[in-house]
Simulated assay, not measured.
Amino acid sequence: MIYLPQADWQWSIDPQDNSVSVLMGDDSVELVYQARMFISLPQKILSFSLEDVAHYTLLKEQFCAEQYTADQSCSIILHILAVTLFHKPIMPKSWQYQTCAIEALDIRSRECVYLTSDQEKVTAKYFVIDVDDKFALCLLVDTQHILTSRKTLRQGQIVKVSLDKITLIDDGDAG
């Protein structure tokens, strides 16, 4: 599989199957999002634009990918890009996570952080896509995150949480 965008890369959004994928020549990556989670698009197939390629390249440089295979890293970056370009806004779900920050944190977008589920006390790694004064939009980069006995997030899913739910990763933990 080629991990840098090529001229034949396309977004494929199928409202009938409620699925989203990236077509990459002979390969494809299925995204965890349902078509209904995305803004309405004028067509089902969209070619990667120059801006998409530039954004993908920038994310590849910024993503904390040391512990991931090239396939996993590519999939995570495509999920981040899809959220950035097409995902509808979501409401915060801070109650699902433990409060951990005592003081204000300097959280930047484009960094990896930890979130710990409140009920199950399981910690997972997330990538901060966007952050403001109160909330951060985070994408799960670990394989899964068990929130409750009935709810588990899959790699690539997003959550919006208040900043007091985030634990920064020490430089020694970044790998």
Rank of each mutant, 00 (worst) to 15 (best):
P5G: 02
C64D: 15
E103H: 13
Q98F: 00
K160H: 01
G25M: 04
K121T: 00
A104N: 10
Q98P: 00
F38M: 15
H87M: 15
Q98I: 00
V131T: 14
R36S: 14
S149P: 00
F63W: 09
L153D: 03
I166D: 07
L147M: 07
W95L: 12
E61Q: 14
S19F: 01
T69I: 01
V20F: 09
Y114M: 04
Q72H: 04
H87D: 04
E61H: 11
S162K: 08
H87S: 12
E61W: 03
R36F: 11
T84H: 06
D142V: 03
P42R: 09
D14P: 03
K88C: 11
T69K: 02
L115G: 07
C138V: 15
F38S: 05
A54W: 09
I146R: 14
Q16N: 07
G172S: 13
S117R: 03
M1R: 10
D8F: 13
Q43A: 11
M91W: 02
S109D: 14
S19H: 06
D164C: 06
A136V: 06
D52S: 08
L4T: 14
Y68Q: 08
V83E: 00
L58P: 00
V22G: 06
I166Y: 10
K134R: 07
R108D: 06
S40T: 14
E51Y: 07
D106P: 02
K44C: 08
L137F: 09
C64I: 02
D133W: 04
L139D: 00
L140Q: 06
D14Y: 07
P92V: 15
T69S: 15
F38K: 07
L78C: 08
K60F: 10
K151I: 13
L105V: 11
S19W: 02
A65L: 04
Q157C: 12
A70K: 14
K60G: 05
L58K: 13
D173W: 11
F63C: 00
S47Y: 03
P15E: 15
F63Q: 07
H145N: 14
L85R: 15
M1D: 08
V128T: 14
I2H: 10
A82M: 13
